[in-house]
């Protein structure tokens, strides 16, 4: 288990997160949600060892994180960052192969290559194996990086726990691939990997996560199963956006629908697929964000008055 206990991160005068705790359990998908600047990525960076907390402790399978060599950690924990800057003309399979770095002594074995190919298949990018990486679109590149992360934790040397940290993995993906990525993360979790995903889309979190951690201005506001965390009150408090929380028409998870301005009553259902697209699609997402920020701004103004 990867345990973040009572973490506070300060940089200079700014407190990025304060007294936040989170467990990343094997077999579980934990989603971190919250408005921009709530400290989601900071929390992920602490879990990835990239950032040392000002106070609090991080334990990696019952050992303090700092006591584990970086390479040892990397064999069992992969990170998918928000953006990657690789511009070099490696071919796609070579990029995935880089995920094997912590496992390789000397040259990559044919098994490493085979793992890279299999990981590329998981993200449905097998046909691109020989393409030059810089020619890919943003979404395709993101999927290749996911494959790289999968290749990294394909197996663990001692059959120990494995962890996958995803920082907004769906940011540049189309609707189907957003679900594809979360579906992959979900099946990894079902197979025993501990997954932490920073997500912007509450409905993706509701649909795929076992537990949700809601952050606001660096503080943990709520934590628990999606159905408990995603209440209209909590979402309004954190995002400043009035929402309706409905039962998902086909699945046992909440469905969050923005209720901002347009119509005061709950919108009517138009059919299953249609609904999901609207709530999970990019337009809905963007509207959430903008309205949310405006509302928070208004709220802040009111407070100062």
């Amino acid at each position: 288990m990867l345990i973040l206990h009572d973490i506070t991160v300060r940089i200079g005068d700014a407190t990025l997160i304060q007294n936040v705790s989170a467990d990343i359990r094997p077999g579980r998908l934990t989603a971190v949600v919250g408005p921009n600047g709530a400290g989601k990525t900071t929390l992920l960076r602490v879990a990835s060892g990239e950032m040392t907390p000002s106070s609090g402790s991080v334990r990696f399978d019952d050992r303090p994180l700092a006591s584990l060599p970086t390479r040892e950690q990397a064999r069992r924990r992969a990170v998918l960052p928000q953006h990657s800057r690789l511009r070099s003309s490696f071919c796609v399979l070579e990029v995935v192969l880089m995920g094997r770095t912590p496992h390789v002594e000397g040259a990559e074995s044919s098994r490493d290559w085979a793992v890279a190919e299999a990981a590329l298949d998981v993200v449905s990018m097998g046909d691109f194996a020989e393409r030059s990486f810089p020619t890919l679109s943003g979404g395709e590149a993101q999927r290749v990086h996911l494959a790289r992360a999968l290749a990294q934790i394909w197996d663990s040397p001692d059959d120990g726990n494995r962890y996958l940290l995803l920082d907004e993995p769906t940011a540049s993906l189309d609707l189907a691939h957003q679900h594809n990525v979360l579906h992959t993360a979900r099946s990894l979790a079902d197979a025993g990997t501990g997954v932490l995903a920073v997500l912007h889309d509450l409905n993706l979190a509701a649909q795929y996560a076992d537990r949700v951690l809601l952050l606001q201005e660096g503080n943990g506001v709520a934590s628990g199963p999606p159905a408990e965390v995603f209440t209209p009150e909590a979402i309004y408090r954190v995002f400043g956006l009035p929402v309706c929380v409905l039962a998902h028409p086909t699945q046992s998870c909440p469905l969050i629908v923005p209720d901002a301005g347009a119509s005061p009553e709950a919108p009517t259902l138009h059919g299953d697929g249609d609904w999901l697209k609207r709530s999970a699609g990019e337009t809905g997402n963007r509207r959430n964000g903008e309205t949310g920020n405006r509302r928070i701004g208004e709220a802040a103004n009111r407070r100062t008055e």
Partner: peptide, 14 residues
């Protein structure tokens, strides 16, 4: 690995 970026290289155990 550093071509991926500094933190990415760190994630790969470098």
């Amino acid at each position: 690995a550093l071509l991926l970026g500094e933190s990415e290289a760190g994630h790969l155990g470098i």
